[in-house]
Design a binder for these strands. Structure first.
Lengths: 294, 294
DNA sequence: CGTCATTACGGAATGCGTAATGATA
DNA sequence: TATCATTACGCATTCCGTAATGACG
């Protein structure tokens, strides 16, 4: 087998068609160059150069070898470059999980910030509920999660990305829309309620029951996705607690009302990653996000 | 700069994930292998392997380098082979990519034309979908592609080789076969449809949805290969849009029906090559094909 | 203490540069 | 005899294999 040096030497000779000048270009003397070319020819098994003491010319086989050798050198240059790009996070893959709700709040801006800062990184997106994201992060199937508490702060590191109000989505023609003031608990006396699923939408479920005395007799549906809730509200099936960002869905026939006595910014969205993560692109993305947040 | 041996050594270690076994495979002892890998990492500038005395694993950069190193070794094998081929009087190699569908339409005649006109050229055939072919053409890993639009006409030059009808493959015992007239959209009302994969068979997918109002509720399977579609049709699972050349597959129990209002010759197959290509065999082949087409 | 990667060390091979040789106009 | 590629020779480097060391369960 020949060496990359031999290929490089051959390219120089083939381009100069002169051992002396080629050697000069390679910053060496003629004799070793001569020997390396001979070795190369022996290992290839055919004559690549036709030479006498007057002139040097490529054989047909030499022409073919030259073209291949050039490709080879390009590939040889690319291999370490690719590895280095990955290692410092300038390229590679970043697998991001997000909850459906994230999709209509800040996912878009977050992605455009990442792609602007890391144009060579391939982004993979997967819609998953928080629980799935945490398992995927733990297994290393995901690099970054956009999800909600609670999660294990020993395993995971996180940032608070966004906190927003919890609002009550009601049909536009509902009497509550005409109160003209923040709602009180009493206003919800026996209004049909579309509630979050206690396990599949655990975050919202816990948030709501922690803050408000939910009348379980009022619950007419139990669903796990905000979008489904909004659709049901629009269909007049009841009212539902949703994060403020649900507004951008722009579903017709739904109003969003504020509740008195509810902690502001109650709905939190976190960026979460595994403390053991090693994907350089992740840290580069976090860095870019931190910079743009400031 | 690293050496080809180091690349070969790294590939062995990356595949075995064990220095001892890799060394055995390379017919050497562990210590020099260890040192070569260290040297390689130093020259690349990043860690390629994560290792402790218990286990060896690839880093992200290592994965990237592995892929490039494999490509490099292929190129290193090809260079002398190309030179020897020329020296033996065979005038070159032509690497042709084709889609699976091409295999049962014109690939046969095209190959026999090329071999008749260029008996001294070695042909290499690789079945690849259009996207893979384009990447391989761009890298110079392929000389000629037989694929479908769209592709970048700045990078690639092309010929329209063939355009054919899009037909509906239906089970022979299906009521539609007894209509005795071209099908209309209404005839497909709620017939189960075997559809193309939107990304892996993007060309056909786009072609179909552009020309026909596909009822997505009717889609019973999503597949990426025409042959698979035909098999599913033969098994009575539904109907499928296929190019006319699928007929030559001769699958029993399948009829091919024409559709009214569908652009004729809708399915295009192109010969595609890189504008920067320099392989003389490519131009000789194109010349021969042009002559025989006239 | 067994496994496996790494470091230490001595000998063989390889490659460079300078010097000598050979071939050609 | 001038030019240019090749062979000869001596020295430095590189690389291998064996042996020793170190880390880890």
């Amino acid at each position: 087998m020949f060496t990359l040096d031999q290929a490089r030497h051959f390219i120089a000779v083939a381009e100069e068609l002169h051992f002396g000048r080629a050697a000069e270009r390679l910053e060496m003397t003629q004799p070793p160059l001569s020997r390396q070319i001979q070795k190369l020819e022996r290992s290839v098994g055919v004559a690549l150069l036709e030479r006498d003491s007057r002139k040097v010319a490529l054989t047909a086989a030499g022409h073919a070898f030259l073209a291949e050798a050039r490709r080879l050198m390009v590939a040889a240059d690319r291999a370490p470059a690719a590895a280095r790009r990955i290692a410092d996070g300038r390229s590679g893959e970043l697998r991001i999980g997000f909850t459906a709700t994230t999709g209509f709040s800040l996912l878009g801006t977050l992605l455009s910030e990442i792609t602007r800062a890391l144009p060579d990184v391939d982004l993979t997106l997967e819609e998953q509920v928080t629980g799935e994201q945490l398992r995927a992060l733990e297994r290393g199937d995901l690099d970054l999660g956009l999800a909600r508490p609670p999660f294990d702060s020993v395993l995971f590191e996180s940032w608070l990305l966004l906190s927003e109000h919890l609002l009550l989505a009601v049909p536009s023609d509902h009497p509550l829309t005409r109160l003209g003031r923040p709602l009180r608990e009493a206003d919800l006396g026996d209004v049909p309620l579309i509630m979050h699923h206690p396990t599949r939408a655990r975050y919202f479920y816990d948030l709501v029951v922690r803050q408000l005395p939910v009348e379980h007799d009022n619950v007419v549906h139990t669903v796990s996705q905000i979008l489904t809730m909004i659709s049901l509200v629009a269909a007049g099936r009841g009212v539902a607690f949703v994060p403020e960002s649900a507004r951008v869905l722009g579903v017709q026939g739904v109003d969003y009302l504020r509740l008195a006595g509810l902690a502001p910014d109650a709905v939190e969205l976190h960026a979460i990653w595994n403390r053991n993560a090693h994907n350089p692109a992740l840290f580069r993305a976090l860095h870019a996000l931190r910079a743009s947040a400031a």
